[in-house]
Amino acid sequence: MISIQSVVHQYNGSPPISFKDWQIKDGEQWLLLGESGSGKTTLLHVLTGILKPTQGEVNINNTSIYNLSSKKLDQFRGRNIGIIFQKPHLIKSLTIFENLALAQSFAKLPQNQERIQEVLESLAIADKKKAYSNELSQGQLQRVSIARAVINKPALLIADEPTSSLDDKNATSVLNLLMQQSGLNQATLIVATHDKRVKDAFTTTYDLP
């Protein structure tokens, strides 16, 4: 269960943005809808524990994440939250396999080759295991970034504009993969976007004004 309560954030010198309270039950799939500049990224960062809000509380599975120390919070994020960015952003100097192993080791989990294999297979990129990111296509890279996000079986899977730079066909397929993976890993899914194409796939929506 994930909840935010009376969260307000104020950047230096700009008016405060306040977010309405939000309760997400385990396994739900949510759409976070808002135009750019509406505070969408801010809310995502608050949710993922990389931006401490000026006020308010964020609870993930009964843990008030901003009461954790910086180091504990990093580790908590590594284990419980998987993030998919608009661009894949893999570590270029490492192979696909190593990128996933890196996610395991940063979360202080033992390296689990079978898990890596399993996730790569479920995303149909197991044959690219030993490749470097510059050898893969954009679509393949996006799959790897999904793989990296789900590798540690996170409770929460967050995707930030995963489809905005893709064409209709790829957007649909990425969306399907996200929903499939969140189901497969029993993760709560939040997709933040201003992309109207995505809208129909979700029944629950959190709207930013």
Binding site: I50, K71, D74, R77, I91, F106, R148
Partner: peptide, 14 residues
């Protein structure tokens, strides 16, 4: 950006 991603993956500042 890479380093920021490492943080999101659970790596500490240290």
């Amino acid at each position: 950006y890479d380093l920021a991603i490492m943080r999101t993956l659970g790596a500490s500042r240290t």
